[in-house]
Design a protein around this nucleic acid. Structure first.
Lengths: 204, 204
DNA sequence: TATTTTAACTAATGATATTAGTTAAATCAA
DNA sequence: TTGATTTAACTAATATCATTAGTTAAAATA
């Protein structure tokens, strides 16, 4: 009696469902109970697909980073220089804006040391480095600059999501102004710092 | 038998205990069960001091923002100009580094619209505005710049905490380079943008 | 067709926040 | 000082979770 339908869920479907819950209700509502209800199965059945709630969070984080990478890479097609940096920045912020829950999941990695997670993150970093190469930054300065770019993009996205920007001041305009200032600064400061470094090393 | 000792907890003691748990074990371990155990009382007794777990999180968030403000304001004493901006930036990041759990709580505000929480946040914003006034930024540009400063500081702190900076590259050096680039850029870009704006308004 | 694997299930456990109602200590007012 | 009130602890009970163990039938495979 009451035949047991075998839905045959695959991981992608599950992650998309989890992503929907995250985006609409927030990551704190991504529970096995809610996810199972949405999928029409019982919570313990989910253990056949991933290793408990931590496992789901990890997979959703990787899924999210891959989506961010895709959005950035797509925005960087056919553009170069400052235009390219601004394009990937806008794409990053747009993604976070349109997918707040998935973005939160992507940066809420339970274990930052996880290899698969690191690999996904490395692709975003590599893309950033490549796009910043237009500025001909030398040595470690390029790596500091990438840290700066990531800090701005994550900080801006996180604060925007948490309602940290209260004023009725256009958000995209803020982002562009911030990015242009930073980019103008790294070009100029690199040379300045090299000069300063020399004098410091030489005397006083 | 077994007299019931009345400990007479006050909110500050409770928040300090919660802050310790948050810093040592992470915000996810700040549960009523753990907090009650640490304080030597039963979980329901905590409801006499705050309104459940959401209430505790809110109070801890405000407590955290006030601590951040204190650290920044203290760092700004007796310095001015770029030196002051760099000082409050370093103080902000140091606070997040030394108090990861409390920092997380401060930026995990369950309700960003809460009046008390907004008031505490406004003090940090005001301080930032005042320190940035050394750059004589005009009109909205000053507000965009404050958004930039906050984005950098939060983004940098959050990524550092989440293990987002993998390379063996000095973190404080990164922060200073990023901030100097941004500050050099806002001074320069402000004029540039005004010029650009005029030409855009005039023609084409 | 027989076997194995897979993906669902039920049942049970333990941790959690929360509510309701209770009690005794501490405080305060007369 | 004493009586009333407030406060801060408590016990008991409930509901929601995640999780584990063991089960079963559908699907895939040999």
């Amino acid at each position: 009696m009451s035949p047991r339908p075998k839905i045959g869920l695959d991981l992608t479907t599950i992650l998309e469902s989890a992503g929907e819950i995250a985006n609409k209700q927030g990551m704190q509502e991504v529970t096995l109970a809610n996810l199972a209800k949405k999928l029409g199965i019982r919570p313990p059945s989910l253990y056949n697909h991933f290793d408990g709630l931590p496992g789901l969070r990890k997979k959703l984080a990787i899924y999210g980073i891959e989506k961010i990478y895709e959005a950035m890479a797509n925005a960087a097609i056919g553009v170069s220089g400052t235009e390219a940096v601004l394009a990937i920045s806008q794409a990053y912020v747009n993604f976070a804006r349109m997918n707040p829950g998935v973005y939160e999941a992507a940066l809420m990695a339970p274990d930052p040391e996880d290899e698969e997670f690191q690999l996904a993150g490395a692709r975003v970093v590599d893309l950033s480095i490549r796009v910043l190469q237009a500025y001909h930054l030398e040595g470690d300065y390029a790596l500091h600059a990438v840290r700066g770019l990531r800090s701005i993009l994550h900080g801006f996205s996180a604060l925007e999501q948490k309602g940290g920007f209260k004023l009725s001041l256009d958000l995209d305009e803020s982002l562009m102004i911030i990015m242009k200032a930073f980019l103008a600064g790294i070009g100029e400061q690199q040379n300045f710092n090299e000069g300063a470094l020399l004098t410091t090393e030489t005397g006083v």
